[in-house]
Design a protein around this nucleic acid. Structure first.
Lengths: 196, 196
DNA sequence: GTCTATACCCCGATAGAC
DNA sequence: GTCTATCGGGGTATAGAC
């Protein structure tokens, strides 16, 4: 009654890694259970809804983990918001290199793949993006940006990060993410207004 | 000797549309030739290198078409660069809605899918992104931004656009692209410096 | 050059022994 | 609850008639 929980968890973990590296369509259930060291039947025992149900869970759990990461990076309400944002980008550039240009974002590839093909998964990615934007918007609002503008700013910062990952991965170069660090600071400063 | 060219072109066109909507891995050769109204063997007659060769051609040709679009949107050297950039984003938001939240970028999904799995295709997407950045950087340089900064600025603007498409498609909402319009102007203004 | 048939493999999913 | 065998279908790619 304890060991069974391990198998389920291993399947989710393996799927998360494979979806991130290869995308949703290119990853098979057999590949997932093989990577998880689990028998094939376990996948459908724990996820009777099949690949779609597993995909939904992967999106939500990895999205929640990333949300915590965002929360920890923007935890200090005293920090200068533009500088903190730029620092997050330079840190992300380092992560990108450490991951050997595999995707630092756990759901980006899947989000694009399913956006026009799989409603349930599309909604799951939308929920995750919204949770990230909300968290970052809260930080900006605490730093003095008006609520609605804070939301827009947070959305643009996350969009910029996702796009910078895309260009950086394609080029095998962290330069786009480093350039985006400066751009992200400009976005936040603009939202802070002349006083900021 | 004329009609054969049509078949090849129809295959490329059909593949472009399907890759854009579903991604690379989820699209099959059979689906492509069916959509093109071509016999199955024609695909391997014109593309003996198979799906990979077809993918490379799709990336390069659709990337070149998008390059022309960028060139036409930033054709006026007298235009205010920040305003022109923001206008491009508001136009992109409209396009996104017209396309019913299908991907306005012909290579974004494929770029993420192949970044860590298919070297030849990854390089093709990198070439395309680089061509877009170079074109936009030329416009910014003409508007008075120093060359190296113009390149960084162009990269960040394109990254922001790609990321905004990602969030907008997931949410089925043009708001992220419209918010990015203001952010893009802030990025360009920051690069222009206090004088701009 | 055009088109059909097919080889060979892996897909997601299920049945049912254990 | 665990695991294997298998089903029906679709994947890429090729052979070869026309």
């Amino acid at each position: 009654m304890r060991t069974t929980g391990d198998t389920r968890q291993r399947i989710v973990t393996a799927a998360t890694e494979l979806f991130r590296r290869q995308g949703y369509a290119a990853t098979g259930m057999k590949q997932i259970v093989a990577a998880a060291g689990a028998p094939y039947g376990s996948a459908y025992h724990f996820f009777p809804g099949g690949k779609g149900q597993l995909g939904e869970e992967v999106i939500h759990t990895s999205g929640a983990a990333y949300l915590e990461l965002i929360g920890s990076m923007f935890a200090d309400p005293e920090a200068d918001p533009a500088a903190a944002t730029a620092a997050a980008f330079t840190g992300a550039a380092e992560t990108l290199r450490e991951l050997d240009f595999t995707d630092p974002c756990p759901i980006a590839t899947v989000a694009l793949e399913v956006a026009s093909t799989h409603e349930a998964l599309r909604r799951a990615t939308a929920d995750v993006f919204a949770s990230w934007v909300e968290a970052l918007a809260g930080f900006y609002a605490g730093a003095g940006i008006e609520a609605e503008s804070a939301r827009d700013t947070a959305g643009s910062v996350i969009a910029l990060l996702e796009g910078a990952f895309m260009l950086g991965r394609a080029a095998h170069d962290t330069a786009p993410v480093l350039a985006a660090a400066r751009a992200s600071a400009a976005i936040v400063r603009d939202a802070l207004g002349p006083a900021g």
